[in-house]
Write a protein that binds this DNA or RNA. Structure first.
Length: 480
RNA sequence: GCCCCCAUCGUCCAGCGGCCUAGGACGUCGGCCUUUCAAGCCGGUAACACGGGUUCGAAUCCCGUUGGGGGCGCCA
C-alpha cells in the first residue's frame, strides 16, 4: 500500500512557519517513500475562514516548493478537498454512530459542564465529561422537533486504554478515564474538528498523519472514531512545536511569523526550506546546508527531534547569505534588479541589468538579504546620489577629503577605463598626496555612492562610468 | 487542578553503554586579510538540570525530583 499523507491547514490565518514546517516534513516524508501528498482545507469554522487566507496558504506552499498530488485546486477523486463541502458526510457518520450506540445526543448545559470541572478540581481528579446528561431517543426527538437540536457526543468506554506507537515519540498511552466524551456534531449540525478531520483521513485513505504536538492529546479521540468507523487507524507522528525566544509556543505575539513575511523580507525559499528542515531534524552527519534532493533522500520520521525548537532567525539569515552566494549571476541580478526597480519606480533596462550581472559576484558576497543589498546598488541607476548624512559627515570632515576628491576628479578624467586602470591611477594619486588608502578612498566612496558602505570602489567607479564619476566627485567637492 | 510530551553549549543539531578530557553549525570574542561593509581563513568561549538506581563502565537504560511545553471548547 502506498504512503498517503495530508497537510490540512485551516484558512483562519496566514501560513506560519510552524505550519510550513509541518507541511515540509509531510512532503519530505512522502517524497522519500513515494506516495501521495494531499492538501486539504480544514475549514469547518466557516466564520473565521477567508479566501485571503486560503490563497495565502497555497501561495506560500508553492513558494516554498511544496507541491501536492491531490487536493485543493489540483483536484482528485475526493472532490474539492474542502471540509465545508462535506458537512452531509460528517452528519451521516455522526448519525451512524448514534445508531450504533457509540454516539449520543447530549443534554448537558454549559453550567453542567462547569460544575463537573469544578468538582474535579476540588477533588483532584480528572475533569472529564462522562455522558451523565445524555438524552434518551425520545428526549432528543422532542428537542429536534422543537427546533433546538442537541449536539452529538462520542461516547468513550471507561475503563479503557488507548495506546499507539507515535512515529517520532514512541509509545504513548492514554487512560480513557482522562478522555472525555467530546462533541462531534454541533447543535447547528456542523461537525467539529475531531470528527471532520478523522472522517476525511479515513475517507481519503491517509496512512500517516504527521502534525503538530498540540494535538497529541486528542489522538485517542481520533483513533476511537477511526475504529468506530471500522477502519485501522493510520500511523501518527507528532512534531514538537516551534517556540519563540521566550520558550512559549510560537504565535503572533512573537512578531510576524507568516511565511509570506520572510518572502517579503528578502529571504530565498531554498534558505527557508533548508532552515525549517534542520529545525528539528538532522540528516545525521554534521551537514547543515542540504539540498532538497538530499533532504528527500535522507529524511525519516524516526530522526525527527522530540524536543521543541526555538525559532531563532539568526541562523536563517546566515543561511540565506549562503544561498545568495550560490545563485547564478543572472538569476541574482534579475531578482535584485526587480527589487531596485520597484524602489526606483521604473523597470531597469537590459543594460542596467547587465551592469548588475557584472557586479554580481562582488555584491552577492556581501549579501544576507536581497532587500538589504538593493539600496547598496541603487547608486548605479540614479543621476544624482543622495547622501547618507552620517556617512557624509564622517568621511568628509577630514581635511584630506577635499584634496582626495580634487585629485581623483583630475585623475579620472584621463585614464584607461578598466578596474586596473582606475586603481593604478587612484593609488598613484594617493601616493602623490601622501594619503592612506583608508583615509583617501572613503570620501570618494561617499561621493560616488552616497554611503560609506558599498561594493568595492574601483569596480563601482568603472560601472558608474567616467563622466558620471567625475561629475559626482565635483558635486561632492562643491557641497563641501 | 487533571492528563500528556520534553530535558546536551546563548540557539539549532550530533551522540542511541565503553571510540566523550562530549562533536558540528549559528552567534559571540580575538586575530589574519582588507579601499568601506561583508565574505573567507585561523583561534578562543560555552552544555550532558538534579538525586537515586542498573552496570565492570553511563550524556546514553530505569525511577524520582525539578524545570519547560502542550492539552483539558458546540476553535482547529
Amino acid at each position: 500500500m502506498s504512503v498517503r499523507v495530508r497537510f490540512a491547514p485551516s484558512p483562519t490565518g496566514y501560513l506560519h512557519v510552524g505550519g510550513g514546517r509541518t507541511a515540509l516534513y509531510n512532503w519530505l516524508f512522502v517524497r522519500h517513500h513515494g506516495g501521495e501528498f494531499i492538501l486539504r482545507s480544514d475549514d469547518t469554522d466557516v466564520e473565521r475562514s477567508t479566501d485571503e487566507f486560503r490563497a495565502d496558504i497555497l501561495d506560500s506552499l508553492r513558494w516554498l516548493g511544496i507541491d501536492w498530488d491531490e487536493g485543493v485546486e489540483v483536484g482528485g477523486p475526493q472532490g474539492t478537498y474542502r471540509q465545508s463541502d462535506r458537512f452531509e458526510r460528517y452528519a451521516e457518520v455522526a448519525a451512524g454512530f448514534v445508531a450504533a450506540g457509540v454516539g449520543y445526543y447530549d443534554g448537558a448545559t454549559a453550567e453542567d459542564l462547569q460544575a463537573i470541572r469544578d468538582e474535579a478540581t476540588a477533588s483532584g481528579s480528572s475533569p472529564v465529561y462522562d455522558g451523565r446528561h445524555r438524552l434518551s431517543v425520545a428526549e432528543a426527538q422532542e428537542r429536534i422537533a422543537a427546533g433546538s437540536p442537541p449536539p452529538i457526543r462520542f461516547g468513550i468506554s471507561r475503563p479503557g486504554t488507548t495506546r499507539f506507537d507515535d512515529a517520532v515519540r514512541g509509545e504513548v498511552v492514554f487512560e480513557h478515564a482522562n478522555v472525555d466524551d467530546f462533541v462531534i456534531l454541533r447543535s447547528d449540525g456542523s461537525p467539529t474538528y475531531h470528527l471532520a478531520s478523522t472522517v476525511d483521513d479515513v475517507d481519503y485513505a491517509v496512512t500517516h498523519v504527521v502534525r503538530g504536538e498540540d494535538i497529541l492529546s486528542s489522538t485517542p479521540k481520533h483513533i476511537l472514531i477511526t475504529e468506530a468507523m471500522g477502519v485501522e487507524p493510520p500511523i501518527y507522528a507528532h512534531l514538537s512545536l516551534l517556540h519563540g525566544p521566550d520558550g512559549k509556543k510560537l504565535s503572533k505575539r512573537h512578531g510576524d511569523t507568516a511565511i509570506r513575511a520572510y518572502r517579503d523580507a528578502g529571504f530565498l525559499p531554498e534558505a527557508v526550506v533548508n532552515f525549517l528542515a534542520i529545525l528539528g531534524w538532522s540528516p545525521g552527519d554534521d551537514e547543515e546546508i542540504v539540498s532538497l534532493d538530499e533532504m528527500v533522500q535522507r529524511f525519516e520520521l524516526s530522526a525527527v527531534s522530540k524536543n521543541p525548537a526555538v525559532f531563532d532567525t539568526t541562523k536563517l539569515e546566515w543561511m540565506n547569505g549562503m544561498y545568495i552566494r550560490e545563485m547564478g549571476a543572472e538569476d541574482f541580478a534579475s531578482q535584485l534588479g526587480a527589487l531596485v526597480g520597484t524602489d526606483l519606480g521604473r523597470e531597469l533596462s537590459a543594460g542596467e541589468i547587465q551592469a548588475l550581472v557584472d557586479l554580481a559576484p562582488l555584491v552577492q558576497e556581501r549579501a544576507k538579504l536581497l532587500t538589504e543589498v538593493a539600496p547598496q546598488v541603487r547608486f548605479l541607476f540614479v543621476d544624482e546620489v543622495e547622501y547618507d548624512e552620517a556617512s557624509w559627515s564622517k568621511a568628509m570632515k577630514a581635511p584630506a577629503a577635499a584634496t582626495a576628491l580634487r585629485g581623483a576628479a583630475v585623475a579620472m578624467a584621463d585614464v584607461e577605463w578598466t578596474h586596473d586602470g582606475v586603481e593604478a591611477a587612484l593609488r598613484a594619486m594617493l601616493d602623490e598626496l601622501g594619503l592612506s588608502a583608508s583615509k583617501g578612498l572613503q570620501p570618494l566612496r561617499v561621493a560616488l555612492t552616497g554611503s560609506s558602505v558599498s561594493p568595492p570602489l574601483f569596480e563601482s567607479i568603472v560601472a558608474v562610468g567616467r563622466e558620471s564619476t567625475v561629475a559626482r566627485f565635483e558635486a561632492a567637492l562643491a557641497r563641501l
